[in-house]
Each structure stands twice: as structure tokens, then as C-alpha cells.
Simulated scan of single mutants.
Amino acid sequence: MGKLKAYKSRGEYKGEPIYPHKHKDGTYVASPSRFEVDYVYVDTEDELEALVRSGLGARMSSPDIKQAASLISANNIALTDSSSPPVVAKTVLPKLSEEVDLDFDSTTKSRKEQAFLRAHISGGRLQATCVLCENEYPLEFLVAAHIKKRSECSKSEKLDFDNIN
């Protein structure tokens, strides 16, 4: 196995070692969150190590455990091979830039009401108060969100500006 290793933290296999999960297409996944939209696909364990050292989590699994891969946070991943120098992001990127195009095409959906909600809660100001921490921030750092899952909201609920922010 490679240099990255973690252990199952709960369930039937608690304490069992897990390693970077290699997907069917040969890639590994690093991510700052469990959401697939945030996944960073890399081709080698060295690239994955660099992203883990930078603070991203990694999808990990074990060939001996028949469970789906889990996203493990960077602070729960051990680096098992200390004999070679650490792989860090700035050493991987130049090599990577020679191998592949650094730009990729993507298609995303955006929430049309987001800009209108920000304008509504700010009252036209360039800053607004975060309802969670009560600190003042520039509008571009704030996200208007629903307590109820947006996908379960009716159109009228999505547009009920006074009750969703």
C-alpha cells in the first residue's frame, strides 16, 4: 500500500486500516468536503499526498472491507513512509502542468435568486451581517441559504425572501 493510511473510526470494522481509494477510472479523490462538486480528481498517490498535506481530505477504503469509500479528513490520515521527502502541492504542480492542460470544461447550475437574496438582506449595502456569527462581511463572502433543503422547497418558498435568510 502507499504512504497514506487511516483507520475506520466506527462500526463493525472499527480500527481496520484503510488506504487511498482508486476509482475505476484510475483516479484518486481529494476534497475539502463530502460534496462531490468539491472533489479534486488526481492521477497519482503523490498528487493525493500533496493535497492531503495541504489540508484536503481523501476518499479511502480497504480491499478487505466491502463498504463504500469514505472521505477521511486530513488530520485523520497518517503518512506511513517518512523515508522519502514530503510531497507538497508546489512540487507537484509544475510537473503536473507539463503533463496536462490545467483548465477543464465544466457545466454547473447556479441559483438565480442568490444575488437577489444577498441584495435583499444587505439593504443595498456592500456589507451585511452573518446571521450565524453576527459578524459583518462583504456581500461576496455571504451565502443566502435555506434551512429546509432547497430541492424540497416550492417555487414560492424559494422566493419568500423575508423568511429564508
Rank of each mutant, 00 (worst) to 15 (best):
K155F: 13
F116G: 11
C133T: 04
L117D: 08
A119V: 00
A115I: 03
K155Y: 13
L132E: 15
K149W: 06
D160S: 11
C153Y: 04
D162M: 03
G123K: 05
N165R: 13
L142W: 01
S151T: 06
G124L: 10
N165Y: 07
A115H: 04
C130H: 08
N163C: 06
H120T: 09
A128L: 04
K148S: 00
K155I: 11
H146C: 00
L117F: 02
F141D: 12
P138M: 13
A115M: 04
C153S: 06
S154D: 09
H146I: 00
K158D: 10
A115K: 12
E136P: 07
R118P: 01
F141C: 06
L139W: 01
V131I: 05
F116P: 03
L139R: 01
E136M: 05
A128W: 01
D162H: 11
A128G: 14
Q114G: 07
S151K: 08
G123I: 02
P138H: 10
D160K: 09
L126E: 15
C130D: 05
K149H: 10
T129I: 14
N165E: 04
A115Y: 07
Q114D: 07
A145M: 02
L159A: 05
G123N: 07
K148E: 02
C133I: 02
E134R: 14
F161K: 09
T129V: 15
A119L: 15
D160V: 03
G123D: 04
R118D: 08
F116W: 04
K155V: 09
A144F: 01
F161S: 04
H120P: 05
F141G: 09
Q127E: 15
A128Y: 03
Q127M: 14
F141Q: 13
L117A: 07
P138G: 00
N163Y: 04
S122D: 04
E152A: 12
D160A: 09
E136S: 10
Q127N: 15
K158Q: 15
